[in-house]
Measured scan of single mutants.
Amino acid sequence: VGDQVLEIVPSNEEQIKNLLQLEAQEHLQLDFWKSPTTPGETAHVRVPFVNVQAVKVFLESQGIAYSIMIED
C-alpha cells in the first residue's frame, strides 16, 4: 500500500476553509492537484501513505465527502 489520491467534495464554504487549512499543514506533505474553490466541486489531493489515515479521520470528523481516486 502506498500513497493515495483522494477525490474530495466539499459541500459548503466552511468545508472549503477546512480543506485550505489542511493544505497549509506542511508536515502532512499533501499535494493538491486541484484545490477546493467552490462547494460541490471536486478537489484532488495526493496523500503520502504515512498520512492517509490522519487525513481520512480529519475529513470524516468534518463531514467532508471523499473517495479514493487512485490507490498506489
Results as ranks from 00 to 15, higher is better:
8 I>S: 01
34 K>Y: 05
53 Q>N: 12
4 Q>P: 08
39 P>N: 03
43 A>I: 15
29 Q>W: 06
51 N>M: 10
11 S>A: 13
21 Q>Y: 14
11 S>N: 09
23 E>Y: 15
3 D>F: 15
6 L>C: 02
65 A>F: 14
32 F>A: 02
45 V>Q: 01
63 G>K: 05
37 T>H: 06
62 Q>L: 11
24 A>Y: 09
4 Q>F: 14
17 K>F: 11
6 L>D: 00
68 I>G: 03
1 V>L: 09
51 N>W: 14
72 D>P: 10
28 L>H: 03
15 Q>W: 01
34 K>Q: 07
40 G>Q: 04
41 E>H: 06
72 D>G: 09
46 R>K: 07
36 P>Q: 02
66 Y>R: 00
16 I>H: 03
42 T>G: 05
21 Q>A: 13
67 S>R: 11
68 I>K: 03
15 Q>T: 02
36 P>E: 02
34 K>T: 09
9 V>L: 11
50 V>H: 12
67 S>G: 05
47 V>T: 02
59 L>W: 01
35 S>G: 11
11 S>Y: 10
58 F>W: 15
48 P>F: 04
67 S>H: 06
52 V>H: 04
32 F>S: 02
56 K>V: 12
46 R>H: 12
6 L>T: 00
21 Q>M: 13
36 P>K: 02
31 D>S: 13
49 F>W: 11
12 N>F: 02
72 D>Q: 12
72 D>M: 14
69 M>L: 11
61 S>I: 08
36 P>N: 02
62 Q>G: 05
72 D>R: 06
25 Q>R: 08
62 Q>Y: 14
19 L>H: 00
40 G>T: 04
12 N>P: 00
12 N>V: 01
71 E>N: 11
67 S>Q: 08
58 F>N: 01
15 Q>A: 05
25 Q>M: 14
50 V>L: 11
22 L>Q: 03
41 E>F: 06
37 T>F: 06
72 D>A: 13
22 L>K: 03
10 P>W: 04
39 P>F: 04
3 D>L: 08
37 T>V: 06
56 K>E: 04
61 S>D: 07
30 L>S: 02
22 L>N: 02
29 Q>F: 09
27 H>V: 08
23 E>A: 15
13 E>M: 15
50 V>C: 12
30 L>D: 01
37 T>R: 06
44 H>P: 02
43 A>K: 02
37 T>N: 06
61 S>Q: 13
55 V>P: 00
5 V>N: 07
57 V>I: 13
67 S>M: 08
22 L>V: 03
71 E>H: 08
17 K>H: 10
33 W>T: 13
4 Q>E: 08
29 Q>K: 13
25 Q>F: 10
61 S>Y: 07
56 K>Q: 06
56 K>H: 05
10 P>C: 11
70 I>D: 11
48 P>R: 05
41 E>N: 07
59 L>H: 00
55 V>G: 00
36 P>I: 06
9 V>P: 00
65 A>M: 12
17 K>P: 01
7 E>G: 04
14 E>M: 09
71 E>M: 09
23 E>K: 15
36 P>C: 04
22 L>G: 03
16 I>F: 07
3 D>A: 13
66 Y>C: 01
37 T>L: 10
34 K>S: 06
42 T>R: 11
23 E>H: 12
68 I>A: 04
30 L>R: 01
37 T>W: 08
13 E>P: 08
5 V>L: 09
21 Q>F: 14
46 R>E: 02
47 V>H: 00
19 L>K: 00
4 Q>K: 07
55 V>Y: 03
49 F>E: 06
6 L>R: 00
65 A>V: 09
49 F>M: 10
8 I>P: 01
4 Q>R: 07
58 F>G: 01
54 A>H: 09
13 E>H: 12
58 F>I: 07
15 Q>I: 02
9 V>R: 13
1 V>Y: 13
25 Q>K: 09
11 S>G: 07
28 L>Y: 09
60 E>S: 06
47 V>S: 01
34 K>G: 04
31 D>L: 12
40 G>C: 08
9 V>M: 13
24 A>C: 08
46 R>N: 04
28 L>A: 03
19 L>N: 00
38 T>H: 07
53 Q>L: 11
51 N>D: 05
20 L>T: 05
10 P>R: 01
20 L>M: 12
51 N>Q: 09
41 E>L: 07
39 P>I: 10
7 E>L: 15
63 G>H: 06
59 L>Y: 01
8 I>V: 08
54 A>F: 13
61 S>K: 12
61 S>A: 12
71 E>T: 10
37 T>Y: 06
51 N>C: 08
8 I>A: 02
24 A>G: 09
37 T>Q: 06
34 K>W: 07
14 E>K: 07
6 L>Q: 01
71 E>I: 07
58 F>T: 03
18 N>K: 14
44 H>K: 11
14 E>I: 08
29 Q>H: 14
47 V>M: 02
20 L>I: 10
44 H>G: 04
29 Q>P: 03
71 E>L: 09
11 S>W: 10
55 V>L: 12
33 W>Q: 08
55 V>D: 00
38 T>A: 13
3 D>P: 06
42 T>K: 11
2 G>N: 10
56 K>T: 09
14 E>C: 06
1 V>P: 13
61 S>V: 09
70 I>T: 12
10 P>N: 01
51 N>L: 09
8 I>K: 01
69 M>R: 05
52 V>R: 04
37 T>M: 09
37 T>P: 06
3 D>K: 06
18 N>R: 13
45 V>Y: 02
71 E>Q: 13
49 F>L: 10
4 Q>G: 03
27 H>N: 10
33 W>Y: 14
45 V>D: 00
57 V>A: 12
6 L>I: 07
19 L>C: 03
30 L>K: 01
33 W>E: 08
54 A>P: 04
14 E>D: 09
37 T>E: 05
43 A>E: 01
18 N>A: 15
40 G>S: 03
68 I>S: 04
57 V>G: 10
26 E>H: 12
23 E>F: 14
52 V>D: 02
7 E>F: 10
19 L>F: 02
56 K>G: 03
68 I>D: 03
31 D>K: 15
52 V>M: 10
48 P>K: 06
15 Q>Y: 01
65 A>L: 10
69 M>F: 10
